Amino acid sequence: MKFYLCIDDTDNLDSIGTGTIAEQILEKIIEKGFGPCSLVTRHQLFIHPDIPYTSHNSSMCFYGEAPDHSLSTIIDLASHHLDTVAAEGSDPGLCVLKFDTASDYSGLISFGKAAKKTVLTKADAIACAEEHQLHLSEHGGTGQGIIGALAGVGLRLFGSDGEIKGALKYIEINRPYQVHELIEFPEVDVVLDLDSKEALSPMTSINMGARSKTVMYQNQSVLFAIKSDDGHFESLTKPKIRQLGESFYV
């Protein structure tokens, strides 16, 4: 089976982040002999005074493969880890979906998109989870994190939302790479021109002048590059990526 797993609202200002906890859960799943699993994606949700969050209101999601009979094991493993490490004062939520190619997930995807633009309630999340017959559970506090956890799964299913957690780990900064070299890194599926959204040729040189990130776009982990005034391509910094806006990925 293929499964999606997302967590939200597990931290406070002094604790490890939700992304780190997601990676810990992923590692435990691998240790059980399941997998492979994808990289973790960060999904930015709505910022509003009525929504409690630690710093950025983002959820963390990944998907993986495992035997059909292992779903309950994965849920128990993730639940136990959340119960153990979630920070004091947090409101953790967990969502796990067993993916079915024959199912229609348009309602779940719509929920994820709505969570980026409006205030949703726990009742909204529970109703959506029941409709799609997936696991959704609270793990402390108010349990408000179930909203973001469900939204993160919907957005990862959508396939054009979210940053890959962390910068490109093994890239040397302030040096050029050709595209064929960049796609050898595990975080990079394809390198696209920011303006045209078309793939750059394998021999195109990209100046990696700063720590950059890849983003999910059309179900691929994409490194966007922009042509500078001197005609050379360079990678985008994290702040520039976050300035692109939701409409860019549609």
Rank of each mutant, 00 (worst) to 15 (best):
residue 9 D to T: 01
residue 96 V to R: 05
residue 68 D to E: 15
residue 46 F to R: 11
residue 233 F to W: 15
residue 156 R to P: 00
residue 201 S to C: 04
residue 53 Y to P: 01
residue 219 N to W: 04
residue 171 I to W: 03
residue 14 D to M: 02
residue 191 V to R: 06
residue 119 V to H: 12
residue 35 G to D: 12
residue 39 L to V: 02
residue 66 A to E: 03
residue 63 Y to C: 09
residue 48 H to L: 07
residue 159 G to W: 10
residue 169 K to I: 05
residue 161 D to R: 14
residue 11 D to C: 11
residue 171 I to N: 07
residue 207 N to D: 12
residue 221 S to D: 09
residue 176 P to G: 00
residue 10 T to G: 03
residue 134 L to E: 14
residue 35 G to L: 14
residue 250 V to F: 11
residue 153 V to H: 01
residue 43 H to Y: 06
residue 131 E to G: 08
residue 94 L to W: 08
residue 204 T to G: 00
residue 23 E to C: 04
residue 10 T to K: 04
residue 2 K to Q: 14
residue 63 Y to H: 12
residue 92 P to F: 11
residue 191 V to K: 07
residue 221 S to A: 07
residue 208 M to W: 09
residue 100 D to H: 06
residue 160 S to I: 11
residue 50 D to E: 14
residue 168 L to V: 14
residue 194 L to S: 11
residue 39 L to W: 02
residue 37 C to I: 08
residue 138 E to G: 13
residue 76 D to A: 11
residue 167 A to D: 10
residue 99 F to D: 06
residue 227 K to Q: 15
residue 152 G to V: 00
residue 186 P to D: 06
residue 176 P to S: 05
residue 218 Q to G: 04
residue 183 I to P: 06
residue 78 A to M: 00
residue 123 A to N: 15
residue 103 S to N: 02
residue 131 E to L: 13
residue 1 M to F: 03
residue 204 T to E: 06
residue 190 V to N: 03
residue 219 N to F: 05
residue 12 N to W: 07
residue 32 K to N: 15
residue 243 Q to R: 14
residue 150 L to C: 00
residue 170 Y to C: 09
residue 250 V to G: 09
residue 45 L to M: 13
residue 6 C to T: 11
residue 216 M to V: 02
residue 95 C to N: 06
residue 239 P to I: 07
residue 136 L to S: 04
residue 104 D to P: 08
residue 207 N to K: 08
residue 243 Q to E: 13
residue 200 L to I: 08
residue 225 A to D: 13
residue 64 G to V: 04
residue 38 S to N: 08
